[in-house]
Structure formats: structure tokens, C-alpha cells
Amino acid sequence: MNRNNLIGWIFLVICTIAAPLHAQNPVKVKGAQGRWQVSEEITLKEAEERAFMEAKKEALRKAGVMENVWSVFGQISQESGTEFHEAYSQMNVLAIGGMVNVINKKVEEVWDTNTRSLYKVVTIDAVVQKEEKVDKSYALEVKGVANLYKEGDVFTCTLKVHGTDSYLKFFWFDSTGGALLYPNTYEPNTLLQAEKEYSIPFSNAVDYRMEKQGKESEKINMMMVATKENIPFTDEVTYQNVLKWVYSIPNDKRCAFYDMILIK
């Protein structure tokens, strides 16, 4: 994968992970709700996906997983000929700091008279597997990631690790596979100082430019994982392998950031 050209992504998700998990307590959550505005850029389907993600984040918050909330749609993409047919799993949705098992899901369309806008609203009941051991002072803060990019836009953001000097891994996934964008040939693995703001990419020699493979909008999924110790990732970069690596690290020694963005 060319690091100078980011391809639009639809990731392949397998939600059953064989990695060792740390001690967890189940917490039942009812009525966790998320909503997302429908617009010219965001379709009904896309708004529902984002509202579902927000509902799962809210379930984590209600269960007490407040720090480093990181969720995954649980989207499974299957290729048939040249088409991608998407199915959505309501179970086994993984999250850093907890695992959300969605029991009930309600989807509504709500018209907001104040903003004169249509919203997709998703309400869920769930069981959150909550990890007990956590460092509440340890967090990865990322700013400047937009929800929507146009083809040809250059991706940049800033990040700051709170609490402890850390090492960073930056993963992206697309329909052709995954890639570890940092560290790389031009940007070596470097200890990041706590509370210091860094720009991504770190070097002017690296340029992350958004490109699409087709005419339709593309989904891009990104993960940044900070660790207190220098823990290398040496496997093939697949979504499942990355999650195995993440869950093999004690919860109090890692923090993460996840986001899904669109290229129009």
C-alpha cells in the first residue's frame, strides 16, 4: 500500500476474537441512545450506522467505561462479483475498555423542529463486559479528524497522550487489506512525550491523500493505539490480528482512538 495515497476502505470484520481477555464484569445497560443528522452528504443508511455507533458509545459510558471509548460497527462486508454486500451484526461489537453485546435495537427517524432537520435515532439494550483494571489518567486525545473528506483531500490531525510517555501505532484498513501507517520508513518508532501535541503525519516526507476506487462514497476506518511500553506489531495487518494484538496488552497499559470517516 502506498503511504502517500489513502484508498477508501470497507473493512472485513470478524467479531470473534481468540486473544486472551482480562478479567471482566458484565453490566446490563438499557436505553442507550445515539442519533445522527441526515443531510445531502449523509444518507439515511450512513446516518443510521453513525447513530448505532453513538448508541454503543453511550452504552459504554453508562456501564462506566468512560475513558478511551472506542467502538466498532461490527460490519461484515462480503464480496459477490464486483459488488460488496454489507450485513450488520448486532452482537459481539468490540470496544477498547469493554465489549458490547447488543440485545435489542430500535431504529427511528425523528424530525427536529428546532433545527428543521431529520435524524436517525438508534436505541439499544446491551450487556457490556467491563474490564476492571484501568489507568484513568491514561488517554489518547486526537483532534482534527473530519467526518467527511472529498477525494484529493489531504488527511492531517493532531494527537496528545495524557499521563505517560508512549509509543504509537497507526492502522488503516481498506478493501484491499490493512496497513500500519506509523511507524514507517520515513517516521521511525519514537517515544512520544506525555502532554505534548504532535501533528500527523510527523514528517513532511509523508502525505496521506484521500482517493476512492469507485464513484460511490467510501468508508475509511482508522485506529491509533498508544502503549506505555514499546510493544511491536509483527503480524500481517488484518483487522482481527490488530485486535488480537490490542487485547493481548493489559488494559492499564494501552489507550486507543477509533473513527470512521467518509470520502465523497
Rank of each mutant, 00 (worst) to 15 (best):
V128I: 15
L262Y: 09
T158N: 13
A51F: 01
I76F: 04
V161D: 04
D125G: 05
G163S: 10
I263H: 00
M1Y: 15
T158A: 10
G97K: 06
A146R: 11
S203N: 13
W9S: 15
V72N: 04
N114E: 09
V142H: 08
V246T: 06
Y167A: 08
K130T: 14
F52W: 11
V128E: 00
V154S: 05
H22K: 07
S117Y: 03
K264D: 08
R50P: 00
V27Q: 08
A95P: 01
C255T: 15
E197Y: 06
N204C: 07
M260R: 05
Q33N: 05
A19H: 11
A126T: 03
N92L: 14
K253M: 09
Q129Y: 03
S77C: 09
G177K: 01
L118I: 06
Y138C: 04
D235W: 01
A179P: 02
A18F: 07
E46V: 14
E216Y: 14
M224H: 00
D165A: 04
Q240P: 03
K150H: 08
L192D: 01
V121R: 14
K212L: 11
D174Q: 07
P26F: 12
T156M: 15
V69C: 07
V13H: 04
E229L: 12
K106I: 10
A55K: 00
S199T: 14
V121K: 13
A18W: 05
A205P: 01
M222W: 07
W36M: 06
I7W: 01
K143V: 11
Q33I: 10
Y258H: 06
A126D: 02
M224Y: 01
Y239S: 12
V134D: 09
V100K: 02
T234F: 02
P250T: 05
K219D: 03
